[in-house]
Design a protein around this nucleic acid. Structure first.
Length: 354
DNA sequence: AAATCGGGGCA
DNA sequence: TGCCCAGATTT
């Protein structure tokens, strides 16, 4: 099947046209200044489901704080999460540190250069494994991300649903056949640059495309119809009251979220499910050991995740007595809040604090 | 195979 | 609003 599609495809000419364009037009990105596998690795984790422009400032700060695998391996998890604060998908940060510790312990601090060893590391899936092998170690391995699937679906007119897992495997087969054996690092990065700047999801710039003459979708004028992707289902609504609880020492009650699930290990102000809205003081006393006097509502805000939508009402409260009984909760001064990693939704609430 | 896991930018 | 983004892991 793969060979059949590629029968009428000039692989060598495609490689040359793509690479010539890349050598002349490649983006100047901070993680392209060296082939240090650790630097490549960090960049690839940060770039998962995240735009280049968003990553750049995080990447600079992270590499300054954790320049080598040893610095990251020895760091406190909370410091790593603080460096990741606002970037999202926080399990990436925890998995990265866990994997780096594995590299220090098992591979003497040297990032592995085989698919088998790399694939065993936490947070390193098929894409990241291929990206490290090709970009840092110059091996002709596929690194199939959203860009690659979009470009290849158009160039070869592949109409499979790219939301399905088996389609990624199919794409890897194509890339193995088409990838440059002389410069696989540049080849993979060239496809990504092309996907990010020319072969974009909407209104692709085919008139500027260096490989338009190889593109079956362009030939038929169906580039806007590809790739095929099943629609995502809409977010589930979750409603909470969020309490900004201040005690007589001008401290605020915060708690650490569980180490599994949504926003794992990040901190937040206490959230009360809307179903308990009529028993807030009881709920807080039972769960936190704190007696409350509820104050005015400070306003509402919404926060949208990939699969959940939070509707939040912000409510002030004063702690009257009692000691905090919840293990994961504590009162902290306003100026100490900056030392804890908070999700963006709770950063938005800081402005309601006196 | 489908659900989970964040946040920002864009039309 | 819905869609996409240099995806991986869990169910």
């Amino acid at each position: 099947m793969v060979k059949q599609v590629l029968k009428s495809f000039n692989i060598l000419q495609f490689q040359e046209d793509l690479l010539q364009w890349y050598y002349a037009n490649k983006r100047d990105l901070p993680w392209r200044k060296s082939q240090d596998p650790y630097r490549v690795w960090v960049s690839e984790i940060m770039l998962q489901q995240t735009k280049v422009d968003t990553v750049i400032p995080y990447y600079y700060r992270f590499m300054e704080k954790f320049p080598t695998v040893y610095d990251l391996a020895e760091a406190d998890e909370q410091d790593v999460l603080k460096a990741w604060e606002g970037l999202g998908y926080y399990s990436r940060a925890r998995n990265l540190q866990s994997a780096v510790r594995e590299v220090v312990a098992t591979y003497d601090g040297k990032v592995p250069d085989t698919p088998e060893e790399l694939g065993e590391l936490k947070g390193v899936g098929p894409y990241t494994k291929g990206a490290i092998l090709s970009i840092a170690y110059n091996q002709p391995e596929p690194a199939v991300d959203g860009n690659v699937m979009r470009v290849f679906s158009r160039v070869l007119k592949i109409e499979d649903d790219i939301a399905q897992a088996k389609t990624r495997k199919l794409m890897e087969e194509y890339v193995r056949e088409v990838i440059s054996k002389e410069d696989p690092s540049s080849f993979n990065q060239a496809i990504m640059d092309l996907g990010a700047t020319i072969c974009t999801p909407k209104s692709p710039g085919c008139m500027l495309c260096p490989i338009a003459e190889h593109c079956k979708a362009y030939e038929e004028g169906i580039q806007e119809q590809l790739p095929v992707k099943k629609k995502a289902k809409k977010q589930k609504l979750m409603e909470y009251v969020v309490l900004l609880i201040k005690n007589d020492k001008e401290e605020y009650l915060i708690e650490k979220r569980p180490s599994n699930g949504l926003l794992a290990d990040l901190w937040q102000f206490p959230m009360i499910p809307i179903a308990k809205v009529n028993q807030i003081t009881d709920f807080v006393f039972q769960n936190y050991g704190v007696h409350l006097e509820l104050m005015v509502s400070k306003g509402k805000l919404t926060h949208v995740f990939s699969h959940i939508k939070w509707d939040l009402e912000i409510r002030a409260a004063e702690a009257k007595m009692g000691t905090v009984t919840k293990e994961s909760a504590r009162f902290v001064k306003k100026y100490e809040l900056k030392d804890y990693p908070f999700p963006v939704s709770h950063q938005k609430m800081m402005k309601y604090i006196d």
